[in-house]
Each structure stands twice: as structure tokens, then as C-alpha cells.
Design a binder for these strands. Structure first.
Lengths: 325, 325
DNA sequence: TTGACAGCGTTACATTTGTCAACTTAAAAT
DNA sequence: ATTTTAAGTTGACAAATGTAACGCTGTCAA
């Protein structure tokens, strides 16, 4: 059924997007109702089956990008156009974030596409999160059979689309490459448990691959009740508070750092299963930042010296530039 | 102006397609009217600045494709979904053709994209026409700095978008590769003139590149008053008639052939400046067919032995399969 | 100078699309 | 066998989109 359904979606997408038929015509040709076609098309876009791409080569480097690049000593900085959301009320905030995720996801996907087509074989490390998820959705039309995608951290318990497992799986499927991930929880229950977990043979092997990544895509989390980490129940309210006490301002892959980008001294950092800062420093790391909530964490992380490239949404870029040194 | 305009178009496209703002919002953000944004977006799609792509990998090989492939001894055959235009009245015929051109163009662009990303450097020969034009429009998001694009035929006098010059130029621009073309008319005024033209050094050099192409994309023309060749005034009504007398049923790149796919014995074939059948036979040749009008010519050309791969629209594929052996 | 002309804004209107609630069917679960 | 669920259909409606008519303004060439 699912396969059948997929084929139908492809046909509908062809009729509508390539053929330029309207939804009514499309429905008639496929023997469906317009409402169904409408939903299928929406799903097709959402799932990344059809993807729109913009020939962005035509716009030069924005001055803002260059400013951020030099200020943080990066190899490159890519900013999406600013959407200019100042006016917005509280209720739109989810929508705004969603837009930022998508925009940065598209930009990141484009960048990854370039990397994949320029290098025959590539080992790509990835983090997790909604921005990363969007990146996987908008990566379309690249064949990279020799590419390897490896999660640089453990997995969530809930099986969300932004779970490392899903991320790696989706990337591998879309490119025809191979996907690897760490088959262990993201945050172990105790330091001793972590030792057991990371000593598993398959985990050791996966971590080895991760450490040899040609490039890593990571994102940052803010440290509030609204953060994804908190909402997913990966950390408790008490833990969050104690992290704050320890000076933490954000996390990447479950590693918590202070405003200077140093890993904080906290028990949680001992339980996280992911590549640490020292390991990341040895790799080319690209940081994806979407949303104003993230700029504190972004600045800290950029100061840490682990980041080599930044992909950020226009609004956050402006805010970050405006943040004092 | 044009550059400014382009940048505006890109920004509008970002807001609308990536950001998901509606046209009114987009207009407000850019300080324009909605009507203008609407037109800009339409232009952006038409010019190929934004392009939608469908992850076609999810549909398997259609039985029809396989039938055509084996029947004509091809390496591969790609068919777009059939749009199923039977019912249509005469006035829609231009619309129908346009849809077919686009569909085949998209499929061809996808194929070319794959080729470019799999081979680091590639020399791509191209013909001319509306299908080829569409192929260039839908080729987006590939960087292939080492690719070379070469027209395998002379140019038109009128500077249309489907002129070999434009085709090659567009391909080169979109991929960052290099474009070459034959700076001579497509059909010389006399056999003697042709001799002079093709002896020009730059022409000799370009033909040399063409003969070394890694792959050639060609299309076919039917031999009626409605054919592009005739409409562009490249051949006169009298010439068309005499070609018919000589047994010709179609052309590719201005070379006329009979229903068995043999070059007809006609003065025009002596005046055409393009790679001939013998030269094409030495190269991997992909034939693009869009529209029912072309199936006679397609069958003939497929019989000639010059074609290695076929990309065809679904309706024409059905009709071609139904045509007797 | 002036008149043709292209580009754009404004407004109005037709078409298309997105969405919802109520109803039907078919399969899955109990 | 009956209840739940999931998925689709239908009809209706609001929102978004595509188009066209008209007038203003600046440019360019006669």
C-alpha cells in the first residue's frame, strides 16, 4: 500500500508541478477527489518528495556574512535572507521558528549538496534537531553512493523525525549512501552506565567512524523550558536548573557549555554519549543556527573554537552581529 | 538594473517558497505590490531561477519503458508519466506540446544531473529545440566546473531561447562549466558555402570537441508545416516538399532521414552543418522525444542505430509502442 | 518638444487552492 | 458481531492566486 501510495504521490506531483495541471485536472486524471490530491501534494512537499530549489548563486556574499565570518574566525558563513520578524506576536513564535528551521535547512542542504557533488566519497557526521531534520528533507537530487552518514551522538527514545537515527537514515536514503548511528541512548542514566554503553563493540566502531568524519553538521540548543531537549524530556526541570547554576548557556549534541564555549563541569556532561569538544576540534564542524532563541548559545559555541563554518538565518545573523563582543 | 532585479527575484522567491509567506506578505516585506510579486514569482519559475524537482527514484521502471528499450536495443529508456491527453481539442494542442516539452525537459535534466555528478569531467554535446531548451531550464543546483558543453550543430539566425548558442550558454552558466558552439549558420546557403564555413579554424576546433563528446543530447523534428524548422524559416515550403519526395520523415539537427533512419539523398543534407549520422554512431547519443507529432521521426531515428538512450513523454511512449514494427 | 512605449501601481474580478465539518466505507480491533 | 479507527468523499466556504483593465510616470528617439 505504502509503495502504491508513494507512486500515486509521484504521479500527482508530476501532473501538478511538471505538467502544470491544476488540482482538479490532476484529481480527474488519477481518479481521485481534489481534496485528496490537495493533501497528497502538501504531503509530497512536506516529506521532501518534491523540493523547490533556488539558484542562489546569483546573490553575492552579504556584508553581514563577512562580518560574522571574520569576527569568529570562520572559514565561511552563509546567511539566509532576513525575514524581518520584529512585529510578531507571541502566538506566531512557533511559525516563525518553523520558517527559520526550514530556511536554514534549505541552505544547509544546498551546502551539503555541493560538498557531496565535489567529493566522491565523504563521511558526514550529523547532530540532531529540527534544523538538521529540515536539512535532510530538502536534500534532493543528489546521488552519492560512496557517501557515509554517521550520527555523532546517541539516539532519542521517542522516535521523532529529528532523531539521529531518522536523520542518518533519511540522508542515506536520499543520496543512496550508507547510514550509521550509535545504537545507544543519547544521555545515559549514570556515568557507570555510560561506560558500559560506549564499550559495546558496535558503539566503539561507530564512534571510530564518527571521529573520522570529513565534515560535521551540528546545531545548538538553548537552555530554557522551551528547548527541545527539555520538551523531549531528555533532561528534567531540576537538571536544567542545576546546569544553569553551573554556568551553562546552551548545548550541542547534549554537551553543555558556558558563555565562553567551555564545557561546564556538570555530571550531565559525563553522561552524554556524543563526540566531545576536543574530538570536534579535530574535525571541520559546521554549525546551523535557526531562530533568535539560539543566539546566546551560538555566540558561546562560536567562541569555543570548535566551529569552522556557520549557516544561520538572516534574522538571527543580524541579532548575533548586534550582540556585544 | 538587471542585477538588482535578479536579486529582488531571489529574495522574493526565498520569502515565498522557502519562508512560506504568501504573496501579500512577501510584497509587504519587499515594498512591492502583490501583483508585481506574483509576476516576479512566475518569471522566477519560468526562467528556472527556482525549480521544483521530484524524487523520481521512488518509482520503479515502467514495463513500457522496458519494452521500448528492448525493442530498439537501447541502453536505457526513461518515460515521463503519461498525461493522457486524448480528449483534447485542437486549440489546446500548443498547451499539450508545451507540457510534453517541459516533462521531457525535466526528465532529461535529471538524467544529465546524475551524469554530471557521477563524472567529474564530462563533455556534453547538445542539439537544439524546445525540449532541449526545457532541459536547460530545469537543470539547477549542480556544480560541474570541469564540464564542457558543446553544440553539435550550427546556430539559428533568430536568437531564440532554443538556439544552440543559448542552450550551451545556459548549461554552462548553470553548472559553472564551459560552453562552446559553432559560430556558423545551421544550414549553409550552398554546398560550396558550407565548405568555406566548416574550414574555418574555430569551427574545425569546435567540431573536434563535438566529436569527442562523452554524451550527446539530441531531439527530433517532424517534417510538416508546423515543425519548428519550418516555422523558423530555416527551410522553405518548397524545400519541405522536395524533402518529402526524397522520402524524408523527420530530421535531427537539420539532418533529414527516411522512415528507416537513413540519411536521405537530398541537397539540404549536404548543406547542413552538424555532426552526421556516422559521427553520431561513434558517440553515446540520447534522444529526447516530446509530443505525439514526433513519433514517426522517433521510430525512424531509433531504427537508424545512432541512438543509445531514449527519454520520452508517457503519451508518446504509448503511441510509439502501439506503432507497428 | 512630443509622442510612443515600457514598467509599474491600483483596483477589480475570476479562478484556484486550502480547509473544515458531516457523512460513508473499509479495515482492524475487541 | 460489534465497536473503533483510519481514510476517503462530498459540499461548502474562506483565503490565496492569477489576470486584466486603466492610468501614471519616466525614457528614448524622432
Amino acid at each position: 500500500m505504502s509503495e502504491d501510495d508513494d507512486a500515486l504521490m509521484v504521479r500527482a506531483a508530476w501532473f501538478y508541478y511538471v505538467g502544470g495541471l491544476n488540482q482538479e485536472m490532476t484529481a480527474a486524471r488519477l481518479g481521485l477527489t481534489r481534496a485528496r490530491v490537495n493533501k497528497m501534494l502538501a504531503e509530497a512537499r512536506e516529506s521532501g518528495l518534491v523540493s523547490i530549489s533556488i539558484d542562489h548563486r546569483r546573490v553575492g556574499v552579504l556584508p553581514l556574512e563577512d562580518r560574522l565570518r571574520t569576527r569568529f574566525g570562520l572559514d565561511f558563513c552563509i546567511s539566509t535572507p532576513a525575514f524581518g520578524f520584529h512585529d510578531t506576536s507571541k502566538q506566531d513564535s512557533e511559525v516563525r521558528k518553523q520558517i527559520a528551521f526550514r530556511a536554514v535547512g534549505v541552505a544547509a542542504a544546498n551546502h551539503l549538496k555541493t560538498l557531496l557533488s565535489e567529493n566522491d566519497s565523504l563521511t558526514v557526521g550529523t547532530g540532531w534537531g529540527r534544523t538538521i531534520e529540515q536539512m535532510t528533507l530538502h536534500l534532493a537530487g543528489v546521488r552519492a553512493p560512496h557517501a557515509r552518514f554517521i550520527s555523532i551522538m546517541g539516539s532519542l527514545t521517542a522516535n521523532n523525525a529529528y532523531n539521529p537515527f531518522e536523520v542518518v537514515h533519511s540522508l542515506a536514503r536520499r543520496t543512496g549512501g550508507e547510514g550509521y548511528f550509535l545504537p545507544v541512548p543519547f544521555i545515559a542514566d549514570s556515568v557507570d552506565d555510560k561506560k558500559v554503553l560506549i564499550s559495546q563493540r558496535s558503539v566503539v566502531k561507530a564512534l571510530e567512524i564518527a571521529r573520522s568524519a570529513s565534515v560535521c553538521f551540528i546545531s545548538a540548543g538553548e537552555l530554557t523550558e522551551e528547548s527541545l531537549l527539555r520538551r523531549q524530556g531528555m533532561i528534567s526541570g531540576t537538571e536544567l536548573e542545576s546546569l544553569r547554576q553551573a554556568g551553562a548557556v546552551g548545548d550541542t549534541n547534549g554537551i553543555f557549555f558556558d558563555s565562553e564555549g567551555r564545557q561546564v563541569d556538570h555530571e550531565l556532561n559525563e553522561r552524554t554519549i556524543a563526540l566531545g569538544f576536543e574530538e570536534l576540534k579535530a574535525l571541520p564542524v559546521l554549525l546551523l543556527i535557526a531562530g533568535l532563541e539560539k543566539i546566546q548559545a551560538a555566540r558561546a559555541l562560536l567562541r569555543s573554537g570548535v566551529v569552522n563554518g556557520l549557516i544561520i538565518d538572516g534574522d538571527a545573523a543580524e541579532a548575533l552581529a548586534a550582540l556585544g563582543e
